[in-house]
Design a protein around this nucleic acid. Structure first.
Length: 406
DNA sequence: ATCGGAACCT
DNA sequence: AGGTTCCGAT
């Protein structure tokens, strides 16, 4: 039943194994319907490939947003993949539009051929990770051989997105989802059609970038996400640890310009440490955004302080926690075994009681609507300065999610 | 260019 | 289910 179509040299099996698109997603045996490559998979494949950058590429500065630079070519490639020589952009875009309702994708209004992924949805649609352990190499291995500075940046973004996605999942799963989504076909509860988040362990997200061997474990992870038009990381050649070694400067707000609604729910995720010491020496003064409540838990590794990242590590439904695979980096200075042992129990997360205010799709108010809601950052005063989640942490780490062992 | 309904296909 | 094809509307 070969049609001579090719897959453009892009393996359709695993390619972000363990994160968002595990290989099962492509395997026929995992689906009675002989699951084929889906369009969004394909789009992501193209996006990760350097050679298609002239055809489709991530939009700089907008996370998850991509531009189809050559619609005809993308359509041709898609048609080739699907053995549909009559494929064109009109048809392809129709398929993309079906993703709007599924919240896999949405259109960036006003920008031609520009769409944006809702990564959280993609992740949510996928099943539990099978082996998301967090290897803990020596710090010196933080940039594995072959990991370029560029990849370094991308890996960081992966981590950011992964955390974001998990945080989104968390929100999603705590019953605070958007009613529109409840009605969407992919979200029928209690069916066997989708994974249950309660059984979804968090990957060691930090491990993606901070732990060595990421190339081996996640060979294609690096190209998954758009390049951060960098604020504090790129120029640093040392690749010591993934997050920028300091808070972003107010002059370079890119760092906290995450599109996710995760950051728009009036939730301060400031670590206790930060709250207790508003002028903490751990970093420069908080930016305007941070003051508004967009902040990340501080992380200390090897004596250095980092801005936290939007964390999705979940205590979620208990059982997930009991599984103990939560995304937090071990202290890289620890001996490997020790670090692994602790990483198995580590966790850190945003307070999972995120609110979904309004429907993302609601015109002008949706957090997922990039062109509609402006910043969309509304933080009721009463929600500012809330305590961080009471989340089980690494042994020896304070609840409050600093990684600073005390 | 973009949207979404409708019928159809696999 | 996840498109593909067609098409009228905006």
């Amino acid at each position: 039943m070969h049609c001579g179509c090719v897959s453009e040299g892009v393996p359709s099996s695993y390619w972000i194994s363990g994160l968002a698109f595990p290989d099962w997603a492509y395997k026929a045996e995992s689906s009675p319907g002989s699951r084929q490559i889906q369009l969004w998979h394909f789009i992501l494949e193209l996006l990760q490939k350097e050679e298609f950058r002239h055809v489709i590429a991530w939009q700089q500065g907008e996370y998850g947003e991509f531009v189809i630079k050559d619609p005809d070519e993308v359509a041709r490639l898609w048609g080739r993949r699907k053995c549909k020589p009559q494929m064109n952009y009109d048809k392809l875009s129709r398929a993309l539009r079906y993703y709007y309702h599924k919240r896999i994708l949405h259109k960036t209004r006003g920008k031609r051929f520009t769409y944006k992924f809702n990564f959280s949805k993609l992740t949510f649609l996928n099943p539990p990770l099978r082996d998301a352990h967090c290897p803990s190499p020596p710090a010196s291995a933080c940039r594995p051989p072959g990991v370029s500075a560029g990849l370094q940046s991308e890996l960081l973004q992966n981590m950011i997105f992964a955390r974001q996605a998990l945080a989104d999942q968390l929100t999603f799963h705590r019953g605070l989802r958007d009613p529109l989504d409840m009605a969407s076909p992919g979200n029928k509860k209690g069916t066997a059609s989708g994974p249950q988040f309660s059984s979804l362990p968090s990957p060691c997200l930090f491990g993606f970038c901070c732990c060595g061997g990421v190339q081996d474990k996640f060979p294609r992870l690096g190209a998954f996400l758009p390049t951060i038009p960098h604020s504090g990381l790129g120029p640093h050649s040392s690749w010591q640890l993934c997050p920028p070694p300091q808070y972003p400067q107010p002059s370079s707000p890119d760092w906290w310009h995450f599109p996710s609604h995760v950051f728009q729910h009036g939730r301060s995720v400031l670590p206790l440490e930060e709250r207790a010491h508003p002028h903490s020496p751990l970093g420069p003064p908080r930016s305007e955004a941070l003051q508004k409540g967009v902040s990340f838990p501080a992380i200390r590794l090897q004596g250095r302080a980092f801005p936290g990242l939007p964390l999705g590590a979940t205590r979620g439904h208990g059982s997930a926690m009991a599984g103990g695979r939560l995304g937090f980096p071990p202290d890289l200075s620890q001996p490997r075994e020790e670090a692994e042992a602790s990483s198995a129990e580590s966790c850190l997360g945003v307070k999972p009681e995120l609110e979904l205010e309004g429907r993302p799709q609601a015109k002008g108010a949706g957090s997922l609507e990039p062109s509609g809601g402006g910043e969309g950052l509304h933080y009721p005063p009463e929600l500012q300065g809330l305590h961080p989640p009471s989340i089980p942490c690494l042994p020896g780490f304070k609840a409050g999610c600093s990684l600073d062992p005390t």
